[in-house]
Computed example of a mutant assay.
Amino acid sequence: MAFGEQPAYLRVASDLREKITNGALPPHTRLPSQARIREEYGVSDTVALEARKVLMAEGLVEGRSGSGTY
C-alpha cells in the first residue's frame, strides 16, 4: 500500500458516506446489499462488510436483522 493510501473498506465507506450526505441515498433508504457493494466497487465481501460496519459505528446507518441496512 502506498503511503497515505486508505484501505479499500475506508474508501468504500467514504463513497457511501458521500452518497448519504448528498442525498443520493436518502434517509430510510436501504443501503446497497453486500453483494451489490462488492460488484459496484470490485471489492471482497470482507471489504463490503467492513465499510458497512464503519457507517454503522458513525451512526449513519442501522442494520435491521433479516431486512438490510438503512
Rank of each mutant, 00 (worst) to 15 (best):
L10Q: 06
E58S: 10
S14R: 07
A48F: 07
A24G: 11
H28N: 15
L10A: 05
I20Q: 05
S33T: 14
S67R: 11
N22Y: 07
R64S: 03
R36A: 11
L60S: 08
T21I: 11
E5N: 03
E62H: 14
S33G: 11
A2P: 06
M1V: 00
P32L: 10
P27C: 12
G68E: 02
A48M: 07
A24C: 09
L16A: 12
R17Q: 13
S65G: 04
R30N: 14
E50I: 08
G42R: 05
N22S: 10
P26V: 12
R38F: 06
M1W: 00
F3D: 01
Q6K: 09
S33M: 05
G68T: 02
Y9S: 08
K19H: 10
E5D: 11
F3Y: 05
A2M: 02
A35H: 09
L10M: 12
I37D: 05
L55Q: 07
V61A: 06
V47Y: 01
R30D: 12
G68V: 02
P26K: 09
R30F: 14
K53A: 06
G66H: 00
P7T: 00
L31C: 14
E5W: 01
G68W: 02
I37C: 10
A2N: 02
T46M: 13
S65L: 07
R11C: 00
V61H: 05
I20V: 14
A2E: 02
A35E: 13
G59S: 05
S65Q: 04
V12T: 06
E62K: 15
R17E: 13
S67N: 04
L10I: 03
T69R: 07
P32N: 13
E40D: 15
E40R: 15
D15F: 01
L10P: 02
Q34E: 12
A2H: 02
A13S: 08
L60Q: 11
G42W: 03
A48W: 03
S33V: 03
S33H: 07
E40P: 11
G68M: 03
V12A: 04
L16G: 13
R64F: 07
G42C: 09
L55G: 08
M56I: 13
L49W: 09
P7F: 00
F3N: 01
G63K: 14
K19S: 10
F3I: 01
D45S: 07
L60I: 11
S33E: 08
L25R: 14
V12W: 03
L10W: 01
H28Y: 15
P32T: 11
R64D: 03
R11N: 00
A48N: 06
H28C: 13
M56Y: 06
D15H: 09
Y70V: 15
R30H: 12
M56E: 15
R36Y: 08
P7R: 00
E62A: 14
R11T: 00
R38Q: 15
E5S: 05
E58G: 10
P26I: 08
G4E: 00
A2G: 03
K53C: 04
R36D: 10
L31P: 04
L55C: 07
S65D: 02
E18A: 11
G66P: 01
Y9N: 10
V54D: 03
Y70T: 14
T46I: 14
G4N: 00
G42M: 06
I37W: 06
M1G: 01
V12G: 03
Y41S: 07
L60T: 09
D15E: 15
T29W: 12
